[in-house]
Design a protein around this nucleic acid. Structure first.
Lengths: 205, 205
DNA sequence: GGTTTGAAACCGACTAGTAGGTATGGAGCT
DNA sequence: AGCTCCATACCTACTAGTCGGTTTCAAACC
């Protein structure tokens, strides 16, 4: 959640967790790793969190909140055309594919793979974060659909999910290859698919 | 690898590893889990594998080989039209989205998320398996491109990667929701994108 | 055919180290 | 005094890996 009331050390722990879990995975990340990265001790850790799993849930929320804030402030939101906003989102995601793999991948996608069958709380937190992000995308898809493709057979939500799925799949290949090249290609295909879904928009605007 | 010479117990261990790692993730899977599932003892395990990591590499190859064999025998390969073969592949993947989540997801995508930064051998094995699968898809994409879209700006390989990425992303959402519904939607979008890439094929065939 | 033999397969108790979690206490603030 | 925050030492369950020993089985020999 990371409200304003949250303590400095707690936020440092959450940031550390997000970084290391994305790098090593959840089970392979030890509390010592996280404490060291955060520069605090285990005493501090267990003061703020009851368990490792509780940290994971909090980290998922923290990551989700940070991401929402980041995208909410991005300039593409200013564009009056919803299709251009969607394309702007895809282009921003492509621009983010720089630096180390663990810096641009999604904590939620990583976490949920390890947690879905064994840690209901963590799975739910990941699901919530992913769904919230999809909801925001879906709003623009809905607006674009009403304007440019009102009778299309697909739902706005299904397009929002598709966009997120392509991103998540891209991250897997970035990890497998240690290279974001495939991810970039995927976003190019995704971009052209979105353009095609709202073809009148592309021709006129 | 699982050659014909491989012993019964070894194959049982590999099958067990594939099943449990897909369910719990690699780090959370213990050797005792695997041995119990396989119905063998630790002594037998370490007779066949030097370490847990070596098992993971072998399991990645085993999974990859089984998958290749499965798809190689699928009836959609008989279709003379390469576009129909691609659509047949997508339809088969959609049909496979039944039963428990860990039964239809991909071991390689799961494994590589935990291993990419810390276990070079496992990452390489996952990369190889994924790349081989993409190569087979790419052959049909290449044939389809030459026939229906010879001047298209995208490469056949990038389409093969895109197809796989959509699948991998779909698996993540199937895990997050404990439900393959999103995955099905994604494959519907993917299908219509492929149709659009080779539009003349769809109109004439 | 029966026996020997040797290697491959297998068993399971044991170990050393690790990682999540606890107990306790102290510094600083209200 | 009491609360928050944090540090240190410690505990214990667990897990990858070990190791001496047993079983299996087939080829080689008598």
């Amino acid at each position: 959640m990371t409200t304003a009331a949250d303590h400095h050390s707690k936020i440092k722990l959450l940031d550390a967790a997000v970084r290391i879990i994305r790098l090593k995975g959840y089970a392979a990340t030890t509390l010592d790793d996280i404490c060291q990265e955060a520069g605090v001790t285990k005493g501090s850790f267990f003061h703020h969190f009851k368990s490792k799993d509780e940290l994971a849930v909090a980290a998922a929320r923290h990551f989700s909140n940070c991401a929402e804030q980041y995208f909410a402030l991005a300039p593409f939101h200013q564009n009056p055309d919803p299709v251009q906003r969607l394309l702007g989102y895809v282009d921003l995601r492509a621009k983010m594919l720089a630096g180390e793999v663990n810096e641009y991948t999604c904590l939620l996608g990583t976490l949920v793979q390890e947690a879905y069958a064994t840690k209901p709380d963590i799975r739910a937190a990941c699901d919530l974060g992913l769904s919230q992000h999809i909801d925001i995308l879906t709003r623009d898809v809905e607006a674009a659909k009403q304007r440019y493709a009102p009778n299309a057979p697909w739902s706005a939500e299904s397009v929002g999910c598709f966009i997120q799925s392509v991103l998540q799949g891209s991250f897997i290949f970035a990890k497998a290859r240690h290279d974001p090249a495939i991810a970039r290609n995927n976003l190019a295909h995704l971009r052209s698919y979105i353009e095609q879904l709202f073809r009148p928009a592309v021709q006129t605007g």
